[in-house]
Design a protein around this nucleic acid. Structure first.
Length: 301
DNA sequence: CGTCGTGTTCGTTTTGAGAC
DNA sequence: GTCTCAAAACGAACACGACG
């Protein structure tokens, strides 16, 4: 039966090259380490060290074994240390439900502000409130504020602006067809485009259409992709046009891969994003710190 | 369920031998 | 003489079964 202590002794002897110094490192006596090495060699049926004058020289088998086990033993030791640390000095856990894309752009960068453990789940807006109320998440990032619910605290942290984008590789720039400096293409022209949408309900496009044309878009998207980053990529390679939050596609715009077709701020629709949590957590200092960090990050501070 | 005896494991101390 | 490894003797801790 293998004893993992034998491997600790093996690694200590391998690294220090003498049993005596290995014993010092392990806080054992030299004979104990000697017995470990002998026991390991006996079980494995191979010699791991050549006993040289004043030093232990690893054999080829010893070198191979060291390479194969050192990482595993180190992981075991660090896992033990971490577990002990967590038991003696437990960190609080914040469970966050958020849209995938918002997490990547705005939350990921501020996780290290608080020394706690995060559990992230990407959930739809519809189920966020329910998960918040039944304790499956502690913080929700949502675009809807259901003010009738008195148990949930909402705070606006960000306003996302939407832009109509097309690929700079596109043969015909929609900007060139803009009518009489209206700063956005005509509805008729837009209806002729290949549209890429988040889903068939056209959640963002519908909102944009309402603001820009006071009507509903008669559009059948050529492709629906339930991820805003992937939609941006699809537009970049000229699979179609779409309407996206500016923070999702700003890098591609700056790099010249995407072109904003509407330039007037009057015709750009927008949406508020809220952080929400249970009112009983109003005095939770970790959540308060997280909210502050997110608030600053969302505003680019 | 608690106590006792026995065997096993794993460590220490002591000692000896060999190399420098 | 000093340093190192190995072997022998010994002790503490523990597991386990028998017994009252």
């Amino acid at each position: 039966m293998i004893n993992l202590e034998w491997y600790r002794s093996f690694i200590a002897v391998y690294q220090s090259r003498t049993m005596t110094s290995a014993a010092d490192i392990l806080c054992l006596t030299q004979p104990a380490v000697s017995q470990h090495i002998n026991a390991l060699e006996s079980v494995l049926g191979t010699k791991l060290f050549d006993r040289m004058p004043r030093k232990m020289a690893p054999t080829e088998e010893g070198k191979v074994l060291y390479t194969r086990v050192v990482e595993s033993i180190n992981i075991l030791e660090s896992t033990t240390n971490e577990y002990h640390q967590e038991r003696t000095n437990p960190k609080s856990i914040i469970k966050i439900g958020t849209p995938n894309e918002f997490f990547f752009e705005k939350i990921l960068g501020c996780l290290d502000v608080i020394n706690c453990i995060y559990r992230i789940s990407f959930v739809s807006s519809e189920s966020l409130l329910e998960k918040l109320e039944n304790g499956k998440i502690d913080v929700a990032i949502t675009t809807k504020k259901e003010s009738y619910n008195k148990r949930i605290e909402y705070k606006k942290i960000f306003t996302e602006d939407f832009v109509l984008v097309q690929s700079t590789k596109s043969g015909s720039s929609l900007k060139e067809f803009t009518d009489n400096n209206k700063e956005q293409p005509s509805e008729a022209l837009l209806l002729q485009q290949n549209w890429i949408s988040y889903d068939t309900e056209l959640p963002i496009i519908r909102s944009y259409w309402r603001d820009a044309f006071r009507s509903r878009p008669a559009i059948t998207p050529i492709v629906t992709i339930p991820n805003l980053h992937t939609i941006a990529k699809a537009v970049e390679i000229d699979k179609g046009v779409s309407i996206l939050p500016s923070y999702i596609c700003q890098n591609a715009i700056d790099a010249g891969r995407l072109e904003v077709v509407n330039a007037s701020k009057n015709t750009v629709s927008s949406n508020d994003i809220f952080i929400s949590y249970r009112k009983e957590d109003l005095k939770n200092k970790d959540i308060a710190l997280f909210e502050e960090a997110l608030f600053n990050k969302a505003r680019g501070a």
